[in-house]
Design a protein around this nucleic acid. Structure first.
Length: 722
RNA sequence: GCCCGGGUGGCGGAAUGGCAGACGCAACGGACUUAAAAUCCGUCGGUAGUAAUACCGUGCGAGUUCGACUCUCGCCCCGGGCACCA
């Protein structure tokens, strides 16, 4: 074996040889069953943007290193990959360059598969699939119909986030600070009828499930904040001279005696009715102003609080006091009831508003043993304290009165303790072409009808126009749009929208267990064997999108009876991003493919380099060439890795392999120096093992470098002695 | 504004309360070579000193400890998440 090795390290010779052999022998083909414990290892699959770049390389190299390590540890490892291949870039390419989205996507997949293979990753390629193929998306449709029948997929008309650039609705999760997460265009609100998944029904379980997950704390926290649970009381206010009631949600029932005004969101349905003729102009002006504002400006905390008095009054159910009803830009229709009770003494936002419009401030909670003066307050007192000016509750601790007041409201039948979540239902309709068609038809007789399984897949039509404007491109295919009702056979129309691509990735990990299954989205038996995913690796940016959606899907499919577990990913690791000039490396910001490094130094050098350059969980700066202003095609530090690989190669070529145990036996019988060498070998094994376990690949590599350096001194000393 | 994470040589980084700077890059000096590349040997936080060595040094300021990059408190800066969520 050693004799066959070339004298110099030649990755261009070695790597293809082994890669070919792995493919021939099925080295990484996973087979369910056997005595070994299973280990399902997954990295978030790639979008086929064109080229693999160093951000991908980092993710997949970490995954591959640990997957191989687990296999060596005696696990039956499944390590699949594929392509998340529906999405906007393919469609934009179609509009701009007149290429078929399918053709564009497949070309990219072909190229990236080549790059994946050149990197020498140990994937089970037989399990690979592309989500844009009917063989995959038919199961999206199949699952959609099941969610539909279970009442978890529903259609409603509401204000959706509309991206004017992408010409489509977006889910809340895909809006970043009022801007489109993809293209950064400012999001508008549009009233549209859209499909939703009932993820809010799972808010509590999504929180509870955290207890059983071995995930990074910050991701759990991000999800927790995203779900945004708050406990409070929803209760009714009577209106003066009006039979309707005004419902509000508050997390501070203990401050109810301090209410000095009420605020409605400008979109609140009661605004029109309550506004008196004298106040109409002012209220209308405010509503118009808010309506014309972008989501970004509207949601900004910097926005000056503005309001208008409606002329109407509400009556406090606790003490009968009469308070003015305002409309203001700082109350959101989407949360709670779209109306609030305002307590300026104990809520900073209400305080600012009251000061601006000269509304009284009434203190009802005071810090223990201290006096407060409403006129002298410069900020709201939001902490706990002792009740004052609160009738029968005076003198009680505010946290106790919280419960007492809530109980009183419940006893009197005017309110109930409720929980509100910030999480919104997941809007999945997209007015785009390159996605999964929604398997629903609209029949004049039968209404909305889900396609039966035997009519799936519902294929994406190819005779469409890509105008990039207006409604979904699918409407331009007459053959697609006009159909017959599966129930009554009468004329019917199809849904022109496609599904959010996050639906594809919400369950793809299940498909890998049985990628060829023809009878269902997945084979129950194989899913029982392989799932859940034991280790999942991907970017932190998916904390509140993909990772929440995937957990929701798993729970929903569990409830429908398709799965026996309800959490998909046992362990999660977030690799750090690769930046170039401080900006995340991506197709859009100038990505560097690994090709040059592989050609010049080999895949092993590429892999070691990306693992060595920074701790796996932290950001890694790639570096920008000061002359061109673009990221380096070949990084400066690669020389050190190349030197190490060469030193290592020569060492083994000359003296045999320390890492196969030959050194250990050779030095076993030797002098003290030999014993030191043996000790170093074992220390290195221990260090590298521990470092891989804790995802510290940079120090694992450093340990192997030290070992190699020591072998050199040992060999040099040995030669000098003889 | 609130919630996380971080701040260590010229650079990437190491050090799970115990010799700060492992490992690597860059730089510099040397060996080999006609020469270069490659390789090998060495120097490489600051100040003083020929040197041994001494003093200073992990964003800033305090504290706990025999001992602090590490723990606690306050502040500054950088990165990320959330953001009129009632």
């Amino acid at each position: 074996m050693i004799n066959e090795m070339p004298e110099f390290y030649q990755p261009q010779v070695i790597e293809p040889k082994w890669q070919e052999l792995w493919e021939q022998t099925g080295q990484y083909t996973a087979v369910a069953g056997g005595d070994k414990p299973k280990y399902y290892f997954l990295e978030m699959f790639a979008y086929p943007s064109g080229d693999l770049h160093w951000g991908h390389i980092r993710n997949y190299t970490i995954g591959d290193a640990v997957a191989r390590y687990k296999a060596h540890c005696g696990y039956n490892v499944m390590h699949p990959t594929g392509f998340d291949s529906f999405g906007l870039p393919a469609e934009n390419a179609a509009i701009q360059r007149k290429v078929e989205p399918h053709e564009w996507t497949l070309k990219n997949i072909e190229n990236m598969t080549k790059q994946f293979k050149a990197m020498g990753y140990g994937y089970d390629w037989a399990r690979a699939f592309n989500t844009c193929e009917p063989e995959y998306y038919r199961w999206n449709q199949w699952l959609f119909t099941r969610l539909f029948h279970a009442g978890l997929a529903y259609k409603k008309k509401s204000a959706v986030n509309w991206c004017p650039e992408c010409q489509t609705a977006l889910a809340n999760e895909q809006v970043d600070n009022g801007a489109c997460e993809r293209c950064s265009a400012t999001i508008e609100k549009r009233k549209m009828e859209q499909w939703y998944f009932r993820i809010t029904d799972y808010a509590e379980r999504l929180l509870d499930g955290h207890a059983q997950l071995d995930w990074p704390e910050d991701v759990l926290l991000m999800q927790k904040n995203w779900i945004g649970k708050s406990r409070g009381v929803e209760f009714a206010w009577a209106l003066e001279g009006n039979d309707a009631e005004l419902r509000v949600f508050t997390t501070r029932p203990d401050t109810v005696f301090g209410v000095t005004f009420m605020v409605l969101a400008p979109e609140h349905p009661l605004v029109e009715e309550l506004t008196t003729p004298e106040q109409h102009a002012a209220v209308a002006a405010l509503r118009d102003e808010v309506k014309s504002m972008s989501e970004m400006d509207r949601a900004s905390t910097e926005l000056e609080k503005k309001g208008a008095f409606t002329g109407a009054y509400a009556l406090n159910p606790m003490d009968g006091s009469r308070v003015a009803i305002w409309v203001a830009n700082y109350v959101m229709m989407e949360y709670g009831t779209g109306a609030i009770m305002a307590v300026p003494a104990h809520d900073q936002r209400d305080f600012e508003f009251a000061r601006k419009y000269d509304i009284p401030v009434r203190i009802v909670i005071a810090p223990e043993g201290a006096n407060m003066n409403a006129d002298e307050m410069t900020a709201a007192f939001e902490a706990k304290g002792v009740m004052v000016n609160s009738g029968a509750y005076d003198g009680m601790r505010s946290d106790i009165s919280w419960t007492k007041i809530a109980e009183e409201m419940e006893a009197r039948g005017i309110g109930t303790r409720t929980i509100n979540y910030r999480l919104r239902d997941w809007c999945i309709s997209r007015q785009r072409y390159w996605g999964t068609p929604i398997p629903i038809v609209y029949c004049d007789q039968c209404g909305m009808v889900a396609l039966p399984d035997e009519q799936l897949p519902l294929l994406l039509p190819t005779d469409v126009q890509f105008t990039g404007a207006g409604e979904s491109p699918l409407t331009t295919s007459v053959a697609f749009m006009n159909t017959t009702c599966p129930q009554c056979g009468g004329p019917a129309r199809r849904d022109a929208d496609t599904m959010d691509t996050f639906v594809d990735s919400a369950w793809y990990f299940l498909r890998y267990c049985s990628p060829q299954c023809e009878t269902a989205a997945f084979d129950a038996e194989l899913v029982r064997y392989w799932m859940p995913v034991d280790m999942y690796i991907g970017g932190r940016e998916h904390a509140t999108m993909h990772l929440i959606y995937a957990r929701f899907f798993t729970m929903a499919l569990h409830d429908i009876g398709l799965l026996e577990f309800d959490e998909p990913f046992t362990k999660l690791f977030n690799q750090g991003i690769v930046t170039a000039g401080g900006k995340k490396m991506s197709k859009r910001s100038g990505a560097v493919p690994p090709n040059n490094v592989i050609a010049e130094y080999g895949a092993d050098a590429a892999r070691l380099f990306i693992l060595f350059m920074a701790p796996a969980g932290e950001r890694a700066e790639w570096g920008v060439d000061p002359e061109t202003g673009k990221p380096f095609t070949v990084p400066a530090g690669i020389e050190g890795i190349d030197r190490f690989l060469n030193r290592y190669w020569r060492q083994i070529h000359m003296h045999g392999s320390a890492f196969t145990g030959e050194w250990v036996s050779v030095v076993d019988a030797c002098d003290t120096r030999g014993q030191d060498m043996r000790r170093k070998t074992h220390q290195t094994i221990k260090r590298v093992t521990a470092d891989i376990e804790r995802f510290q690949f940079n120090t694992a590599i450093a340990a192997m470098m030290e070992m190699t350096n020591e072998l050199y001194s040992y060999a040099a000393a040995g030669l000098a002695a003889t």
